[in-house]
Structures are given as C-alpha cells and as structure tokens.
Amino acid sequence: MYSQIVMDHFKNPRNVGELADADGIGEVGNPVCGDMMNIFIKVKDNRIEDIKFKTFGCGAAIAVSSMITEMAKGKTLEEAMKITNQDVAEALGNLPKNKLHCSNLGADALHSAIKNYLDRKTGKIKDLDWDRQAHLKGSGPEGCYCPYCQKKIEEESPFCVFCGSEIPHEHDH
C-alpha cells in the first residue's frame, strides 16, 4: 500500500517533538477527517533554523510530517512557502489516492507555522487556543477537503463540486 520511503519515514520519523521556544506554530487538520498535524519552527535570519512536528494520524500523515520537516529545514521562508503538498507526496514516492485527503497536510501545516511567525512579528498573534478547541471538537476552520483536488468541500457532500469525484462517507443512511 505504501512506498518504501513512506514506510521508512513512518517507522523512523525525523524531527518528532516540540520546540519550547518556537517562533511559529502551525496546526492543521482535525480528528473528524482523520489527521491532525502541528509544526513548530525556529526562525533565524529569515531561515528555518529548526523544525519539529507532532502528528495524530495514519502512516501517511506521520510520513508526510517527517518529510516536510526534512524539506523545510534550512530553507528561507520564501522558499518554504513555495513547497506544496504535491511536492511532499512526490518526495515520498507518492501516496495512495485516498490518503491525499487528510494525510497530505504537511505543506499546509508548514505554511500555517510561517504565517503564525509573521503574524507574531507584526503583532497579529493568531489565537491558537481557539483553533485547538475547534479541532478537538472536530469542527476546525480548516473543514473537509476533496481527496482528489484538495478544494474545500461541504462536510457531507457526496461528490466534489470542483472536480466531480465521488466522495465516500461512512454514514450514508
């Protein structure tokens, strides 16, 4: 099911943990859709000097988290903002199609951490606690995304209005 690179990052994840003195914290996903990812960054001279992650999720989610930290480390903020979820999936030797939905959130989490860093710098501190409560309740502002084209969709929609893919839901009754 998973590529060897995915299994390697899943079994031996890089950069697990938190940074107590993080300059930016990113948080995406929610347990309703499957996965939740936190990214912590330390920024020096406009570069990501250190990065760590914590993830609640499947094998793919953990591998994605591990891979994004490897890809972002040492990059300038501009370079890091250009990394896409697609890049991460490719670096992992691709992910199963249904995993692109919840699990491939690495770049989003990284970008969220960078935005958080920039907001802090400009005095607009994102209210992480609010985010957190919403996530735990399972209705975060991130909502649900189409697994195939990544656009935001309605929670219960049977198909994606953007790309037309059918979206399976467990409670169809």
Partner: peptide, 15 residues
C-alpha cells in the same frame, strides 16, 4: 479508523 477504511469518516458504528 477513517484513514484505513478508504473513506473519510470514522466508523459509523462507533460514532
């Protein structure tokens, strides 16, 4: 788990 079920949702039974 939702992830392993191939669908996007946690088990309807457990919920």
């Amino acid at each position: 788990s939702a992830c392993a079920s191939g669908s996007l949702r946690a088990s309807h039974v457990l919920i």
